[in-house]
Design a protein around this nucleic acid. Structure first.
Lengths: 158, 158
DNA sequence: CATAATGTTCAATACATATTGAACTAAATG
DNA sequence: CATTTAGTTCAATATGTATTGAACATTATG
């Protein structure tokens, strides 16, 4: 593992943190991406990331739970290997849209506690209406992607 | 300020935290929403939220910076008042989409550090391609919203 | 059965950062 | 000019949580 890759792994840690996950989750994803192996053992993750067994254990469980990685078992081998899942872009997106809707709905809930309608009432109503509507639009956009994606994915080695 | 509203203000704090902002930012938004005033003074926020001046000062500055609230000044009055801005749903959405693109791009960056293309390469490439494409789709969806929103916003008091 | 290999659990620690609170600036008022 | 008002700054504190590390469980192996 060269130093460029090690730097990248930390960068991935920060990116996942920005996205609301933990640094270690990002490091594990980064490691699995750049390591040029199909799957990586628990032990290699621990040594490669210089982290504790507890941290690897807990974080791999989280990543499996949200579907970003998956365990790989081999016959005659007691170890657990992990690899990046082919988690669908739509699944990730839908999760975020739900967060949006919840956020807007909490704002709009405040509206129902007011004793009068006013400028803020209108704003919260538009917020929640928009994000709810947006959720259904996203479904159409995802369908469009499925039919058109070949036009937009350009491999570096076609 | 009744107890239902006070409870709501804390709930708003949690919602903003989920959205990557601070609890106090959410409390201030919550207060401004349910207080039934057009604008609220620094001092009222401090007393109403039982927070320190430092906290109100720092958090109002953040909320102004990101456009969620705006200061209101009155002639002959030294105080600063704050109110919820009519921040455009599109502005908020675009900010989140940028975060998405950055996230996917970091994953894809790992791809360029690999010595071979493989399953993970394909996945990161699709991720970043999708979210970049999605960014432009969102612009069209926002235009659609502007022309159609009247059909989707239903006031409780029409 | 004794030992090694593979993970798990959870209390303790480390770490980041949100919030406080006291000291401060700046401007208005009498 | 002295005092009050309004808000800012920043070092100290509180708080939450990510991570560690040691003890433990479990299963395989000789």
């Amino acid at each position: 593992m060269n130093s460029e890759k090690l730097t990248y792994i930390e960068e991935a840690g920060l990116a996942f943190e920005l996205f609301g996950m933990t640094r270690m989750a990002g490091r594990i994803m980064g490691y699995l991406i750049v390591c040029d192996k199909d799957a990586v053992s628990f032990n290699e993750l621990q040594e490669g990331l210089k982290a504790s067994k507890g941290s690897i254990s807990g974080t791999t469980k989280q990543l499996v739970a949200i579907g970003f990685i998956e365990p790989v078992l081999l016959p005659g081998d007691r170890k657990t290997y992990y690899r990046v899942s082919n988690v669908d872009v739509g699944t990730i997106l839908r999760g975020r849209v739900q967060l949006f809707i919840k956020f807007a709905t909490v704002l709009e809930k405040g509206r129902n506690l007011k004793s009068q309608n006013d400028r803020v009432s209108d704003w919260t109503l538009e917020m929640s209406s928009f994000y709810r509507w947006f959720g259904s639009e996203v479904e159409q956009v995802l369908n469009k992607w499925e039919t058109e994606k070949d036009n937009y994915i350009n491999d570096r080695d076609p």
